[in-house]
Design a binder for these strands. Structure first.
Lengths: 218, 218
DNA sequence: CGTCGTCTTGACCAAAGTCAACGCACGTGG
DNA sequence: CCACGTGCGTTGACTTTGGTCAAGACGACG
């Protein structure tokens, strides 16, 4: 149904902010293609990434009720994104009451994932930390059919990864190195091969329960 | 309206888990009195606190749609808590459609706060980190009328604080010491005096916007 | 061919983490 | 009323981890 909408679709380049933290919120964003991330820029130059978005994600949903954007959204690759005015979304509550509940559910799952990120950043050592985010991304891509078997596109630079796990780039580099040496992953160009999924999950203490995916194949 | 409900109210001791992560969720919890926290226990013995709850908070709301408890809730002090079965809550959607939207809003704000915690734990140095949580707590207590002027009850042990900011107790102790030496706070027994609110906010880089409080007096 | 972005590596430093001892206040029970 | 235990806070010494910086390699692209 969503896809039948007459959407205002735009093609945007990589490394662009779609919305910026603090702006008044007017639209929800539907990521149709490409990758993006939600992040906050601090005044001391540091930056924290809160989540990665993949094709199909409805982002900036929080602005709907909050009235203002609480996180900047930035493309990581060239992307196609649909802009859906809040009025349109709110208009759905009449004809599709269940849809509203789904949107609510979406925010609940977002929150559940955030909690796991707090744990990740707060309690896990460097190596486990990057492993854990990798697991999460792979698991999510798998669930939405964006992974073929053990391989999936995951165009994250180490810089980006570093801002997601709150570690310096140098350490991320070393951690990835270790993961390859351990025979758990391999990556060529912008994609990731998982060589040993169970091993990877163990290395990152990854338990996908918090993602609340319908398809628990992972 | 909430308070008129025929609630199943129980008095519970300090340091008790009201619900445990992973349990099937059946009730929402309304904290009527006392303090509690939401936390996850890791298998390596570490623990991360996600949020503090004060009187009036409706907790375990996530379980309503998710079906399972995603975080344990533990009392920090003796507390009175009301148990509200999910069916009751869902039953409200008919008579009070706006209430559902409020509950949704609640989860959005919870998520916004979680994001700030990711930033806090990920990007801020020890001293700023504990300062920031203190600011948050004070700000929230103030907003719900649980602070008289510069003074509020805040019965957090340093252990608890440590698990919230992901730092060793020793560091929390030192940070609090510094805050007192700097003349920003003072604390006697279980309550906190804010001596210099603006200074405290600056020390913790605290900007209350993310709390989305109606009363922006803080 | 040069440039830019990304990744890798090493050396070094500072901050967080660990551990353990001590002090103190508050109970309880003899 | 005192002895004792317990929970909580403080302090110090020490280790490890994460953080910073900078140089170099490699590949993509114009």
């Amino acid at each position: 149904m969503l896809l039948d909408l007459p959407l205002d679709v735009q093609q945007v380049r990589a490394h662009q902010d779609l919305v910026r933290s603090g702006d008044p919120a007017q639209c929800c964003l539907l990521l149709l293609d490409g990758f993006a991330c939600r992040h906050k820029q601090l005044r001391n130059g540091r930056r924290q990434i809160m989540a990665f978005h993949v094709a199909g994600d409805l982002t900036n949903l929080t602005g709907l009720l909050l009235g203002q954007v609480d996180c900047s959204i930035r493309t990581l690759t060239p992307a196609r994104v649909g802009f859906i005015p809040h009025d349109t979304v709110l208009g759905w509550s009449g004809p599709y009451p269940n849809l509203m509940r789904l949107l609510w559910l979406d925010t609940l799952i977002t929150a559940a994932v955030l909690q796991e990120w707090v744990v990740n950043v707060g309690q896990r050592p460097a190596y486990e930390r990057v492993t854990h985010v990798l697991c999460e991304q792979v698991s999510r891509l798998h669930a939405v059919g964006l992974a073929e078997g053990h391989r999936c596109e995951l165009p994250l630079t180490q810089d980006v990864l570093a801002d997601a796990v709150a570690l310096p780039v140098a350490h991320v580099s070393r951690a990835l190195q270790e993961l390859q040496d351990a025979g758990l992953i391999a990556h060529l160009d912008r994609s990731l091969h998982v060589l040993d999924w169970d091993g990877l999950k163990r290395a990152g203490w990854f338990d996908p329960g918090y993602l609340h995916q319908l398809d628990m194949a992972a």
